[in-house]
Write a protein that binds this DNA or RNA. Structure first.
Lengths: 145, 145
DNA sequence: CGGTATCCAGCGTGATACTG
DNA sequence: CAGTATCACGCTGGATACCG
């Protein structure tokens, strides 16, 4: 099924605000979104718990990303009004259903990581070789500034 | 299968350059990457052909994104040295295999678009309501600049 | 046709300090 | 504990002009 063409117009259609797919792709673009979703997918977490499980995230980015995910209905926030504030984040049904396609990407990434690195290395040596070739023949067409 | 937890460390591990998953997620993050991949997935395209099929893309962004995809082995470039330059871009085996997880995401996005919009609208009215409530009680704690 | 070069605005992200 | 406020900065992407 996934082998058929997908309608380009669905993504590229005029107004970006009207595009369904971009709304979703945003959650891949963010640096922390997938991490947080993955964490919450395994179990509910408190704010501090998330910070501990996600190595380099700052409080600010954790907050803003959680707000984003909450806004789009991927996670829900539950604050219990104890003396010291305690807040738990859980994944919603919508968020959970999103884990399936996400895992698909992750599995692919894991399986093809080596291929990508190899392609990249090959491309880079080729690019460097050409640059050297050019600069040897024409010391400076563009005077480097 | 996709229901099991995925190792967070795989994504969050110390050095970002060492992370396999981020290498792939980059291709979702870019504004044009998925569009181009989708186009080339249906058939090989010339540079100009891609520009025509992807509404608002500039020459610069088309070039840079194609280079990115080429570097990572998703597409290949074939220039035939005719009088007027002609260049064809094709999707590679690696790129084609990536279409499967990509379609997974796209299908999900299409199916849950309405849910996201609804969640977003609900969140926004709630946020606005709270803001109004606050400003009515305390005219200006922070003098708004 | 298929690009490069250059400049620039905006946004995403990080660091730090303060708050209830 | 769970944030918010503020500033700084780099990178992405857009506009424009030029090139072989």
């Amino acid at each position: 099924m996934p082998s058929g063409p997908f309608d380009i117009a669905l993504i590229a259609s005029g107004d970006p605000a009207e595009c369904p797919v971009r709304d979703v792709l945003v959650h891949f673009g963010g640096k922390w979104n997938t991490l947080i979703l993955l964490c919450l997918g395994s179990a509910p977490h408190r704010f501090g718990g998330l910070r501990r499980r996600i190595p380099h995230i700052s409080k600010r980015m954790l907050t803003t990303t959680l707000r984003d995910l909450e806004r789009d209905g991927f996670v829900s926030r539950h604050a219990f009004p104890t003396k010291l504030p305690g807040v738990e984040y859980r994944i919603t049904g919508l968020g959970h259903s999103f884990l399936d396609p996400l895992y698909g990407v992750l599995v692919w990434a894991d399986g093809h990581h080596a291929d990508i690195r190899r392609a990249r290395a090959g491309y880079d040596v080729k690019a460097n070789g050409q640059a050297r070739e050019l600069s040897e023949r024409q010391p400076s067409t563009h005077p480097t500034r």
